[in-house]
């Protein structure tokens, strides 16, 4: 049953990675910027969730607050940092983004402490169920269900609503926005807002899983998300979803095989480097890096 347990772990992690990565791939598709500071948005989401949950006693309110605060933060990053840098080579906004991430991480440490914050009440997360010998935690179920709900909603939004259709078209071909009667600048804000909401939810869920938010919470995840969007073919949401699940599963099983000579977290880095070398344009997308 060990192998099934690993599958459950892998899939639930994959769902979390997917929510984290979609924002990144959207930003890349639209602006050709590697939005490394997305990890700071993720961390902010986690902090807001914990702080509000502890203050109000309701985890739901925590998530709600995170979902309201983070899109503002994401849009501010675009407006204040990226927009003025769009005229430079793509590595310029990327370095600025790294700077912002480092800054935010230290800011979290200074304000909330090195040790981080734990949930005062988080009983729900550790409830486990047993399905024919396979152990599943309530949180793993929550991760998968949330991801399903979020991505179904996103799918409906981008196929059923006018603004959603225009948005999707714009991401895949930025010059097209005008012909849909859509303001391309609004699309950018929408992009950052939606991506940030998803990252915040992922951040809140990871916080629950660890029962802890510490300053470094977004760091490794952000790098994995970069690996995922490359694997998924840069700018492709579907590719990103698949790649997220693949990485979740590879990590889960990979630790059995190479855990003795490499950190679990380093697997994603190794995968990304190998991937960039053999296929710089990703596996699914036709778009060139």
């Amino acid at each position: 049953m060990y192998y099934f347990d690993l599958a459950v772990t892998g899939i639930s992690f994959g769902c979390m990675y997917a929510m984290m990565s979609v924002g990144l791939t959207l930003v890349y598709g639209l602006l050709r910027i590697l939005h490394v500071a997305h990890a700071a948005v993720f961390a902010l989401g986690a902090y807001v969730t914990v702080l509000v949950a502890n203050a109000t006693g309701s985890i739901a309110l925590g998530f709600l607050a995170a979902v309201i605060v983070t899109p503002l933060f994401g849009m501010a990053i675009y407006r204040l940092l990226y927009e003025p840098l769009l005229k430079y080579r793509p590595d310029v906004p990327m370095i600025a983004s790294v700077g912002l991430l480092v800054l935010m991480q230290d800011a979290f440490r200074i304000v909330f402490g090195e040790q981080g914050i734990t949930f005062q009440r988080n009983a729900f997360a550790f409830k486990t169920f047993n399905f024919a010998g396979v152990t599943v935690s309530a949180l793993q179920i929550a991760m998968v269900v949330t991801a399903l709900v979020v991505f179904t909603g996103l799918h409906l939004f981008t196929t059923r609503t006018r603004i959603g259709i225009g948005w999707r078209a714009t991401v895949s071909k930025p010059q097209i926005a005008a012909s849909f009667g859509i303001d391309p600048i609004k699309v950018r804000y929408l992009n950052f807002a939606v991506g940030s909401v998803l990252a915040a939810i992922a951040g809140g869920l990871v916080a629950e899983m660890n029962n802890l938010v510490d300053p470094g919470i977004g760091f490794v995840v952000s790098y994995k998300a970069l690996a995922i969007i490359v694997l998924g073919g840069l700018g492709s949401v579907r590719g990103t979803l698949i790649a997220s699940l693949v990485l979740g599963l590879v990590e889960a099983y990979g630790t059995i095989f190479i855990g003795s000579w490499l950190d679990r977290d380093a697997i994603a880095f190794l995968a990304l480097i190998v991937l960039l070398m053999i296929r710089p344009q990703g596996f699914t997308g036709a778009r060139a890096a």
Binding site: I33, L34, R89, P90, D91, M94, I95, Y223, L226, A227, V230, L262, D265, A266, F269, L270, L272, I273, L276, P280, A289
Partner: peptide, 16 residues
């Protein structure tokens, strides 16, 4: 790889 992906690769090399 293009420059920004090279930057990502080098981050990866550092972590690795």
């Amino acid at each position: 790889v293009r420059t920004d992906f090279l930057a990502v690769t080098t981050i990866g090399v550092n972590f690795l």
